[in-house]
Amino acid sequence: MDLSYEVKDSYAEITAAGRLNMVSAPKLRELVAEVVAAGTSRIVINLEETAFMDSSGLGALIGCLKAARQAGGDLRIARVQPQVQMVLGLTSMDKVLTSYSSAAEAFGDD
């Protein structure tokens, strides 16, 4: 998985391309911790190029959500693809991690 991030006006956008599984999940956790430590706790993870996510990847998203909220911000997801949506739905995590149609829209309401 290739991870990169860009700090925008009011949030940071992390782009995750590839498979979010037990191999890449710790890397995502590290990157989010780094972004939060650098002072941005409003984070959008762009999952447009994430073709696959397993429960380890989901666990990382939940951990990252907690880290962002503990720092006073939030973590949202955007551009979710079918397999990831399926995993979110089967685990009922679609109620906790709402998917937005674009990264810009994720924090567009506040």
Binding site: D54, S55, S56, L58, G59, A60, I62, G63, K66, V87, L90, T91, S92, M93, K95, V96
Partner: peptide, 12 residues
Amino acid sequence: DGEAESGRGLAL
């Protein structure tokens, strides 16, 4: 539940 970061594999 929603807060857990692991334990979903087998249920999934």
